[in-house]
Computed example of a mutant assay.
Amino acid sequence: MPADETSSAPFLPQLIAQSFALLMDDLVQHLVDSGYDDLRPTHCLNVFRFMDCGGTRPTTLARRAGMTPQAMGELVGYLERHDYVRRVPDATDGRGRVVVYADRGTQAAEVATKYFADLESRWVDALGNDRLADVKSALAQIAGGACDADNGVDGAGGARGRAGTSKAPAS
């Protein structure tokens, strides 16, 4: 490819960021349209996508989201007041508390999970199964360096045992 063509083509990280922004905008709009109009993008981006299925300490959520514990406490407090999450005693350490999904949060997670399945079906229609499988495989390989227990990201770019892989808004 000539040098002038490469300078106008976006870099892969830019395309990934743009795709993620579109996905998040569409997800939040879908949740709003489905009756969850009190959710904001920051709830999906900074709380739901970092929650473990068995519950997550607020300080862990803050670290994963790159936020202060105080800022995370405000987000969790808002979500708790709107019945998306609850804070319950940590079963592994009775002195601490973990954030878990409340009924409304579980329902929103189911809406999000269906949205992601429908989105992937649309991508199969647009790209074909083989091309989409190649994209997923390539992104999983790229994300492979991020596979550690601390951030909980698996090789598929999803949350390992957390939101996004089954019943929680992955955001």
Rank of each mutant, 00 (worst) to 15 (best):
A156S: 15
G128Q: 08
G128F: 06
Q141E: 12
Q107R: 11
A133V: 06
A117C: 05
R81V: 06
A109Q: 09
A112Q: 07
Y84I: 03
Y78W: 07
G105R: 01
D148H: 09
G164W: 05
S166T: 13
D148Q: 05
A112N: 00
R87I: 02
D125G: 11
Y115W: 15
Y84D: 03
Y84L: 05
D130P: 02
N151V: 08
N129V: 14
A112S: 11
D93E: 12
A140G: 15
E80G: 12
A146I: 01
A91T: 14
L119A: 12
A109E: 07
G164R: 07
G96D: 13
E120S: 11
D83E: 10
E80R: 14
D103A: 03
A108F: 01
G94N: 11
G157S: 02
L127I: 04
G157Q: 07
V76A: 05
T113Y: 06
V88W: 04
D125M: 09
S121V: 02
R162I: 00
R86P: 00
Y78A: 11
T113V: 03
D93T: 08
A163N: 12
G152F: 06
R95C: 04
A146E: 11
T165Q: 13
D90P: 03
K136Y: 02
L79K: 11
V100N: 00
R97I: 09
Q141M: 08
V100I: 08
R95K: 12
K136N: 04
A170N: 12
A117I: 11
F116T: 11
A156N: 12
A108H: 03
V153Q: 12
V98E: 05
D125F: 04
G157M: 09
A163Q: 10
D83C: 03
V76R: 00
G77A: 03
G105E: 00
G157D: 07
L75H: 15
G77S: 08
R86V: 07
A143W: 13
R104M: 01
